[in-house]
Amino acid sequence: MRIGALVRNADLAHDAEFARSYPAVAEALLSGASAQLRNAATVGGNLMQRTRCAYFYDAGSACNRRWPGAGCDALKGENRLHAVLGWSEGCIATHPSDFCVPLVAFDAVVEIEGKGGRRELPLEALHRLPGETPERETALERGDLIVALRLPTEAKDFARHARYIKVRERTSYAFAVVSAAAAFRIEGGKIREARLALGGVAAKPWRAREAEQVLAGARPDPAVYREAARAALAAAKPSGDNAFKIELAQRIVARALTLAARGTPDRIPALPGSPFSSVAGA
């Protein structure tokens, strides 16, 4: 599946074939922003959202992304929703995209037109962790243009067991506190292959390969989900008043895995990504 960079989020999510093939991606898209924003936002634009926080926007605050070397006022500031994985003293902001979370789980590839011609990059390699150079957010070079996004055909094999779950502070038009995309290929009652990624926890959409390894070959049951959740957050540490996010992330991982194993719903719920998506009328 090749998706042009200028395709609108809403058009993509509502494309019947796309939603059937990649239901967790469609659910993630529809859980993002608001209906109005989804009507305007594009695939390429979504990938290129800045990793940011309130201090990035506040011109009076120090922010290494805005002004390399200035420092990070978020570090000892109001930071209950900041990163718990992959952060550095240079930046503790999170990447806000919902869309990118299942995309990295499914090994999406970005097509880039640059000075040296066209090249490809795994989406997972597009966003960078802050390290010493938080101002360098992506692997793009000057003059690069994202022209398309590709989802490998194998990603369709997960279509029957794929969910995106997002906890947020209101039901729409709010970034994830933490989110998770989970998908399985289940054969003979066993997990043949698992995919897992988290959102709202790091400067990039966070692929949890250690957790996937825990799940591969196991029988789908709550104990193994919990073990996978622990593995996914093993490296996590609070960057401020956000230790709860480590616990919450593990629970969301376990929930997303549980729901994915239960099976993709016939249609995308009215409250996409919501823990309450199963509630009648919700």
Partner: peptide
């Protein structure tokens, strides 16, 4: 949400003031 050091409001917009 007010930064406890600067006294600036960090969510002075309808996206983040919920």
């Amino acid at each position: 949400v007010m930064d406890h050091r600067s006294g600036r409001i960090l969510n002075a917009n309808l996206a983040e003031y919920h």
